[in-house]
Simulated scan of single mutants.
Amino acid sequence: MSAKLPFTPNPETDLVLERTVDVPPEWVWAAWTNPEHLKHWFCPRPWSVAECKIDLRPGGVFRTVMKSPQGELMPAGDGCILALEENRRLVWTSAMEPDFRPVESGEDAFLFTAHILIEPDGAGTRYVAIAMHPDEKGRQKHEQMGFHEGWGTALDQLVEYMQSRAS
């Protein structure tokens, strides 16, 4: 890791995507925290975001509903924002609903905590996304779902979208 992280990721349970992107930290923050921006880049195309709700406060909701190319809706659940520091860090989890209420964790539950870490790097941003899972099985499932490719493609789309707004 080249970015200074607030903790050491556990390779058995955590997935990490780290890159430098050619947009300022404020743009990355806006893309992650404004539902109208997030809808344009969050899902790798040809998927899209049909619905997004973000209540930007600890205990607030982080909710997205994805839409397949065939029109099938896939709710991602009502996650809970755990922590935020403007233009630096956004942390949310699928293990809680808004207001820190625990979710029921049945056999099919897909629980993880996401850390989006943003820091200035020249005219761009050092971007680190970490998905923490309760166990190795959860990490493997997320990896097999295409974490690196999917989250990497979404990041490319974030940069493309935010740059297009500036021109």
Score class of each variant (00 low, 15 high):
M1V: 12
Q70V: 12
P6L: 07
I116E: 02
A95G: 01
E72Q: 15
E86P: 13
M74Q: 13
S164C: 03
D22P: 09
E85G: 07
P120T: 08
M145E: 06
R19W: 06
T33Y: 03
L5Y: 11
E160W: 12
S48V: 11
T113L: 02
L155M: 15
G122Q: 04
M96E: 09
L155Q: 15
I118T: 09
P9L: 01
E143P: 00
D156C: 10
D135V: 00
I118N: 01
S94Y: 01
S2K: 14
T13A: 09
K53M: 07
A95I: 00
E86S: 15
L56Y: 03
L90F: 07
Q140F: 05
M1P: 15
G146H: 03
K141S: 12
P44M: 15
A50V: 07
T125V: 09
F112K: 01
E143A: 12
E18T: 12
T113H: 04
V23L: 13
S48E: 11
P69G: 09
A114T: 11
P58H: 01
M74I: 12
L56C: 10
T20P: 06
M145P: 02
V65C: 00
P102N: 00
A114L: 12
A83L: 10
E51M: 09
A31C: 13
R101M: 06
S94G: 10
K4D: 12
R89C: 14
E12Y: 04
